[in-house]
Structure formats: structure tokens, C-alpha cells
Design a protein around this nucleic acid. Sequence first.
DNA 1: GCCAACGTTGGC
DNA 2: GCCAACGTTGGC
Length: 139
Amino acid sequence: MACWLFKTEPEGWSWEKQKSKGKAGQEWDGVRNFQARNHMRAMQKGDRGFFYHSGSERRIVGIVEVSAAAHPDSTDSTGTWDCVDLVALADMPNPVSLDAVKADARLKDMVLVNNARLSVQPVRAAEWALVCKMGGYSG
DNA sequence: GCCAACGTTGGC
DNA sequence: GCCAACGTTGGC
């Protein structure tokens, strides 16, 4: 099972809204970046992801599960863009801030640190485990 | 509100 | 196919 990170501005689409969708989940639509799209194409149903609030919050606030593999983005009419569906799994008990991630040398290679602008990112297994530990998530 | 980093676009 | 110009993102 692969692990990922999904970034969003809470003013646009927040963890609260994501949770309000319940088990029905939500298309992760609107992504218009090839790298991010290709990551979504590589995802499989059942993969896990961190849900990260950018902007003024800058912290990982929740855990999501990929509930549907990549399919055409319903907000795109050109056929170029795909997206997956996400279901909220759990709150991060103690949200993990960007500062905390940057402060830990073991996380220095995280994409979040090195390419903050990429909105859908792969997360290595060791990084996943450590961030979950930092956040008190034992899932 | 500024600016650095990065991706995309378009002219050549 | 290269590269300059531009727009956007996101951290500070």
C-alpha cells in the first residue's frame, strides 16, 4: 500500500468539508498539474494519505483513504485531467505542523519540505510511520 | 504583502 | 526543442 499527501487551502476545501462527505467520499478534482495527476494515476484503491492544510495553518490534520482509483476529473472537459476519490478516515490526534516536519532531520527528504508547491505528493513508508507517530495516530 | 520557486506557455 | 516571459503557489 502506497502513501501520499494531499494539500489544500482550508478556505477552499477543508478537512471539515472532507469529513462531512463521510463514506461517500469526494473527488479530488481541480488538480491541473501533470506531476500531481501522474501521482494520482499511480494510486490504488485502499492507499492512504495525509490531508494537509496549507496557507495560514500549514499542518497535517487528517488521514484519508483512496476510495476510487484515478478516473476523469468531472470538472474537466478536455480529457486531460484525472483524479481519485478520497474518504476521510481519521483526525490526526495531534496535527503535525510543517515546522515540526522541518525540525526533524529524518524528514528532510519529504516532498513537503523540498517541493512545497506540489499539491499531490508521494510519502515514503518510513516518513509515513514517523509522521503518524508524531501525530499520535496509530491507525 | 512580498518574494522565491516552479510549472506552463508561446515565440523563435 | 530551447528559453524567456509569465502566472501561480505557498511560505515567510
